[in-house]
């Protein structure tokens, strides 16, 4: 199986994602340039974090129209596994591949720290190696990670178990204090209704070796391998 990591102008977590897949998962991985119009041969595509197009207009708004995104859209429509991390999540929301939107943190500050995340749904392509309710320690690093969706959309994704990760305290309790950015319902990560597209603000690729402070991100990335190998 082969992973692809898209590079947009301004991506800056592409190498972290690449190394996590190659060195920790031990899977083949290639970069995909944003001008590319062909993503055939890939089993999973990663939209990495960063500041694509300088975050101009809105985060992800311009990257969404990069040439590669037509191919990525087709890839997802055909059931390919697609995960957007941080800026990648913002791009997926702008591209309507995931519901809702990400707006500025309610404190208007860039936040870079490890957070606790509760696994809300472990029966997905992205969380199947976690146990339900497990608390993961994975870092966030964003200015615009405040998840918003209108009431109908929010109800739909909650009823559908599309919320996969929520900000919580170290005991796994979902509290307002554990919410770093104002996200509705403490939402940190979601999947689409079909279950093949995921977006999350925390960076699993930055938590894949003990020297990084946590290996919990490996559970997310390895889950994809597990499902594709099955």
């Amino acid at each position: 199986m082969k992973f692809g990591v898209v590079i947009f102008p301004g991506s800056n977590c592409d190498q972290d994602a690449f190394c996590a897949v190659r060195d920790v998962l031990g899977q083949p991985v290639e970069y995909i340039w944003h001008q590319s119009t062909d993503v055939s041969g890939f089993d999973c595509i990663v939209l990495p974090g960063g500041f694509s197009y300088g975050d101009y207009l809105r985060t992800g708004a311009v990257a969404r129209f990069s040439p590669v995104m037509n191919a990525v859209q087709d890839f997802a429509d055909n059931g390919g596994r697609l995960i957007g991390i941080c800026n990648g999540f913002q791009i997926l929301c702008e591209a309507h591949l995931l519901p809702g939107a990400l707006i500025d943190n309610n404190g208007l500050r860039f936040i870079c720290k490890h957070v606790n995340l509760r696994v809300e749904n472990n029966n997905t392509d992205f969380t199947n190696l976690c146990s339900e309710g497990q608390v993961l320690s994975i870092p966030i690093a964003h200015h615009g990670g405040n998840y918003y969706a209108d009431a109908d959309t929010l109800k739909k994704i909650e009823d559908n178990n599309q919320v996969i990760l929520r900000y919580c305290d170290s005991a796994g309790k979902v509290t307002p204090e554990a919410n770093p950015n104002g996200s509705l319902n403490n939402i940190a990560g979601i999947i689409n209704d079909r279950g093949n597209v995921a977006g999350m603000m925390p960076h699993p690729e930055r938590a894949v070796e003990s020297i990084l402070g946590s290996e919990d991100g490996t559970l997310i990335l390895q889950s994809i391998v597990e499902r594709l190998m099955a």
Partner: peptide
């Protein structure tokens, strides 16, 4: 398509 995000 671009200048505004109708979701927000």
């Amino acid at each position: 398509k671009l200048l505004a995000n109708p979701n927000i």
